[in-house]
Design a protein around this nucleic acid. Structure first.
Lengths: 237, 237
DNA sequence: TCCACGCACGAACACCGTTCTAACAGCAAA
DNA sequence: TTTGCTGTTAGAACGGTGTTCGTGCGTGGA
């Protein structure tokens, strides 16, 4: 018994200290996974190289052996998440609805990872999952009879749409103060109605419609507008 | 003559030193103007409170007497610039073309101030010029027969469109390396064509259309798609 | 066995936004 | 004219950031 107790006191300096705990060795995989976990839990502003390193119980310099810089890390995180997007197998009869299904899936992925829309901004998804998604997207858009140049641009247009429309959407489950948002919207509404009606006839009249659209209906409406616009370019099969 | 020379040597310490050079006193106006100048010349990444203070030959702390924080400063810069946007007086007969004119003007303003699109991201323009522009925008959209709720959302949709479409547009006159951009696009083109055609039939076939659209035509095409989509919601006057 | 190479990582660099604090200016009241 | 106050100025500092440097260690190959 007594002998066992001595194991708990610090090893004397003349002995070689015990190995550090056999942690999982660093790898790009592990770093990306950790970064994504931090992003989900604490958002983009909290996602620093130091924070990721801390989570892995190491220093920030250690990450740079596996990742060129923060920008590349975000590229990897973004591509990792793109695997979750669901893009339907084209069925020309249901083209418009399928495009919407794809966009809804993209939106849901963006919303389920905090601040992911911000990450995706001005980032061209050229990772494995990115190009795979692009391939399926092109297949889907072309199935509706869109000419190649229109389909090529439409891919960018719709993903940009989802990104901007998701930008300030709050994390759904997370403790985001929805009443604070409502108060802010109400404040804008009051401000608009308080403007002098002679100089701002439209804003004062439209204060209601401007402030009443919730994120869900904005998204559905935006999709419908874009899909209608796109379908005017469809050529008969 | 000799007496004049003594004016150039340092004043002795027992005299009260001459007034500091009668610099223009700080003001919010001046700070915003300076920040915009720095933004235009060096971009958003170089725009720090320290940089603005340096430009005004003072310390960063001095700015906080006139501006709450950097975010508010950017709000003010954004609103300042919005004054340059040209929104036509509604003429229902030319509705579609007028909407495009407005968007082209907005795009030109975004492109003529470096990184302004980035500044405008997730910023609701509620300054003086912002609401004035919103009023005119609503007038224009409604003139095309859009119902109020559609017009209200359409305002957001089109400005978001211009923002994202301008995001990575380089400063036109500035020394941005256009050949580097062309090389990057060519690299993407080569990459797409190098993909295995059996697994990526669409991307390999569409490598051309995907990489050939320049910013100008992208913008015109995107506008046309959205305007066509919007016009399906127009009600007869 | 020895060496070399890649990874780990503490320390440091040059920034950032913001706040604390003290000195100072202009100005209203006495 | 003097006093006292209020709001501006600004140096220094705090706590953070991304990234690099240099050192050391552990392990696989010669």
């Amino acid at each position: 018994m007594e002998a066992r107790v001595t194991q708990a006191i610090p090893t004397p300096p003349w002995q070689t200290p015990p190995k550090p705990p056999p942690r999982q060795p660093l790898s790009q995989e592990l770093i990306v996974t950790t970064a994504l976990r931090v992003l989900d839990a604490e958002g983009l502003d909290a996602l620093s190289m130091r924070r990721v390193a801390q989570e892995l119980q190491t220093g920030p310099a250690s990450l740079y052996a596996h990742v060129a810089n923060k920008d590349e890390l975000l590229d990897l995180v973004y591509d990792r998440v793109l695997a979750e997007v669901d893009i339907p197998e084209p069925d020309p009869a249901r083209w418009a609805e399928q495009v919407k299904e794809m966009l809804r899936s993209l939106r849901q992925v963006f919303r389920s990872h905090r601040d992911l829309a911000r990450v995706s901004l001005s980032r061209i998804p050229l990772g494995t999952n990115g190009v795979a998604g692009m391939e399926r997207t092109m297949a889907l858009l072309r199935a509706g009879g869109l000419p190649d140049d229109i389909a090529a641009y439409a891919g960018d247009l719709v993903t940009s749409f989802v990104t901007t429309e998701t930008l300030d959407d709050a994390f759904p489950g997370d403790g985001v103060d929805t009443s604070a948002v409502q108060a802010y919207v109400a404040q804008i509404h009051d401000y608009l109605t308080s403007l002098p009606p002679d100089r701002f006839p439209n804003l004062t009249q439209m204060a209601g419609p401007i402030t009443s659209l919730d994120s869900e209906r904005r998204f559905e409406l935006g999709m419908e507008i874009i899909v209608r616009g796109l379908s005017t370019y469809a050529e008969p099969a």
